[in-house]
Design a protein around this nucleic acid. Structure first.
Lengths: 194, 194
DNA sequence: CTCTGTGAACTCTTTCACAGCA
DNA sequence: TGCTGTGAAAGAGTTCACAGAG
């Protein structure tokens, strides 16, 4: 169902410890608990969103975050016109309030949903406020201390990857085709084919 | 700057062909053109968005798609209350209009921005309309013909990955720590540390 | 006989190290 | 001397195949 074979599932689970019983199977409920604990999903992780533009609003309004353990502790924006408006039950606050939100809400994860030019400043402020993990939606590489973890999600890049397969499907017979195929195998592994 | 060493850059570029000159360097402009051509970025790829909720609206309103070669050919929604409204200069159309949008706009990429329960239906309709690549934001595995490429972006999973590092940073000294470290190296490779 | 745990084999990716060329 | 191209080595990740246990 997940596109992963049995050997890989067993090997991966074995890294967590020995939670199965040979010849019998896994206690599913207990296994799920252990996986969740290992991934840090046994409690909520409040997040603060920087940028109340289209994306920031969507993220704040998207119930999937709260439902899956990531409640919105706050959303801040540089634009005073947006401050005071409500999105998904959360009030947009001033950028200067970020430190207070992080401190009061025990926030360790920040989301950068600003335009590219404002992203580094947003990251700097998040780091200064004490955030140690950042999810970056801006199409720039953020420069942060080594103690801070950054993950980047570039929506346009996701489309570019699809365009690569589209282009390849139609524009066949190029001489370098097979070599490029091999080199891009790490990308293809995220394809889900039914 | 990109967190990649010179050998890897050279090796990767070599898969596209021999576009550099030994002892001299690459003609940057020509190289960029070749990379773009190989990735299918030498022309626009109009996309159709299914779902005009928070996320669909954000995607449609987000200028980054159009700017990077992915203009919004149309956005459709099941909810008649949303039909007729405008988002980022694009009118929300009825779900039934999807076929016409795809045909008229020569769309081959669809974006699923629906709730989880509606995602498979959205994908089925996209495939029936002739779309061959799907970017799926719903937290479900889509079942599509092997001729269709699917990429999944799960925003909550991105936060879960960050929570894993957070949990690990604080809750240290667990016996299985080193083994799990090794097994998760494929996740860590997307971290950007300054 | 069934199902998990895991060392070993295998495959794929990255890096090294140097040849080739200006 | 400087920079690209690439075979070979090294390193990671995945799969195999079977031991172990009920």
């Amino acid at each position: 169902m997940a596109g992963v074979n049995a050997a890989k599932v067993r090997k991966d689970l074995s890294y967590l410890g020995t939670y199965g019983v040979r010849g019998v199977g896994y206690d599913v409920e207990y296994l799920i608990y252990q996986v969740r604990r290992e991934l840090g999903l046994d409690h909520d992780w409040p997040v603060v969103i920087v940028g109340a533009g289209n994306l920031g609003q969507a993220l704040a309004g998207y119930g999937g975050f709260r439902d899956r353990g990531f409640p919105i502790a706050g959303i801040v924006d540089l634009d005073d016109a947006k401050v005071g408006t409500h999105i998904g039950g959360v009030e947009v606050r001033r950028l200067a309030d970020m430190g207070a939100i992080v401190r009061k809400g025990h926030v360790s994860i920040g989301v950068v949903a600003t335009p590219a030019v404002a992203a580094q400043d947003a990251a700097d402020r998040l780091v200064a406020a004490g955030v140690t993990s950042i999810l970056n939606f801006a199409p720039v590489l953020l420069n942060v201390p080594t103690t801070v973890t950054v993950r980047k999600v570039d929506l346009a890049v996701e489309l570019q990857i699809l365009s690569y397969y589209e282009q390849r499907r139609t524009g066949l017979d190029r001489p370098t085709a097979s070599a490029a195929d091999r080199s891009s195998a790490h990308v293809a592994d995220r394809r889900v084919l039914g």
